[in-house]
């Protein structure tokens, strides 16, 4: 029997959830015995090469590329997990949600104290760049999400527990000590 396949991605996140994933420490040796990784920054596979059993996504959606990647994940993954505060609630990036996008960009590229007044002031607008969304969206407001693991970051123990529960086909029960929003 072939191993279950896992894929991961970080969208509008800080990669902290992935770092926490790596914090499962030596259990990662057990994990690679149990599963196979497909598209993920962990093995640097850039595109899906086969159907995936569990997709894990960190970060919300702040631009068109995030939305595209998220939809690709939904298409290829049987189970899709929202990992961490940003994926579930928008998190820190969503602090811009009350500010119009133009104002945000002007602040960053025109009015920031570190802008050199001698430089021509340019706002990135190349058509190859992803378009910034009007606000940062939690993942479940764009595609269907099957499971949520809160935390900033979710602890390695929570990620481990979720993965092992899924692999054993058990429902995920989160003990009080592992359910944290910070």
């Amino acid at each position: 029997m072939s191993k279950p396949v896992i894929a991961t991605a970080s969208l509008a996140g800080c990669f902290g959830c992935h770092m926490s994933f790596l914090d499962i420490d030596e259990r990662i040796l057990d994990l690679i015995d149990l599963v196979e990784f497909n598209k993920s920054p962990i093995d640097d596979i850039k595109t899906f090469t086969k159907p995936v059993d569990v997709g894990i996504i960190e970060g919300g959606c702040c631009n068109s590329e995030n939305v595209e990647v998220l939809r690709e994940f939904r298409k290829h993954c049987k189970v899709l997990i929202s990992l961490g505060e940003c994926a579930i609630m928008g998190g820190l990036p969503a602090m811009r949600n009350g500010i119009p996008v133009r104002e945000c960009l002007e602040e960053a590229y025109f009015h920031s104290p570190t802008i050199d007044p001698a430089d021509p002031r340019l706002m990135p607008g190349d058509e190859d760049l992803p378009i910034i969304l009007d606000k940062v969206y939690p993942l479940h407001e764009i595609v269907k999400i099957d499971a949520y693991l809160p935390g900033c970051p979710p602890s390695a123990d929570l990620i481990w527990k979720a993965l092992t529960s899924l692999l054993e086909g058990k429902p995920l029960e989160i003990p009080y000590s592992l359910l944290k929003f910070d």
Partner: peptide
């Protein structure tokens, strides 16, 4: 509020986020 969310095992709110400007 957070403690109540923990007690009720809130993983994600069932309502859309409003992101009000405050």
């Amino acid at each position: 509020l957070q403690a109540l969310a923990y007690r009720f095992q809130m993983l994600v709110p069932r309502f859309p986020f409003q992101f009000p400007v405050r």
